[in-house]
Design a protein around this nucleic acid. Structure first.
Lengths: 113, 113
DNA sequence: TGAACATATGAACAATCATTCATACGTTAT
DNA sequence: ATAACGTATGAATGATTGTTCATATGTTCA
């Protein structure tokens, strides 16, 4: 246990704490970015930028198992990032939000440095 | 193995693939967001928005072990999101990038819905 | 030089999470 | 009704990762 017993230490700690976002907000923020932290989900969203796609189409585009895609789509659905349209045997998925493009571009911007 | 043997199926698959970002880029994108996907790191960055802080200060602000903070700072350092200034026994960390604020705000924007 | 402090880091552990396998559910066509 | 197809999902598994403990490194002060 370090003490850091400097002069204005306690004050700095309190001040910083007060100016930080709510604890809940920071947890939500982490959870939000967690959705974007998996390459399979990134690839799914990248594919959906082109327009709506059925599950098996996505699976073939990414060259991955249908089951894997379904599981990840479930997460994207839970976070309201994609929406589904059912037509016969197929489920067509599309992006639910225009924010996603912005978030992608911001990430890409940071990467290219 | 599902087939999805529709008319323009193969064409759609190829078209979508071609218009997607490079595979490497999508992996990098996921890795980038992974840094923001942990609540401890989010809290550290939130604290650093107020200005530079020593390791033990951050630990006390978050009420977590010094070791935990050091480990997470290591990750933030590796991703070039924070920079260090050593002064005597202490290491003072600060945000390395103004992008971070934008990324935070974009996330917060999406959350509040 | 030795003690106290601030930080960094390796190893162990626990928890989380993505993928796979098997299978169930719902729809279409014969 | 049965078969074939598309999708969803629970359980098991393997890999990744955050935290803790112990300890090493480096600095300051007596």
């Amino acid at each position: 246990m370090s003490e850091c017993t400097h002069a204005s230490h306690r004050e700095l700690v309190n001040n910083t704490r007060e100016n930080m976002p709510e604890l809940d907000t920071m947890f939500e923020l982490a959870d939000f970015f967690k959705v974007f932290s998996d390459s399979t989900r990134i690839r799914i969203m990248s594919a959906l930028f082109q327009g709506e796609l059925s599950v098996c189409c996505i699976a073939e585009i990414l060259n991955m198992e249908q089951s894997t895609i379904s599981h990840q789509l479930r997460i994207l659905r839970r976070e309201n990032l994609v929406k589904v349209r059912k037509d016969g045997k197929q489920s067509y998925y599309s992006l639910a939000d225009d924010h996603i493009r912005q978030i992608f571009e911001m990430g890409l911007e940071h990467i290219s440095e």
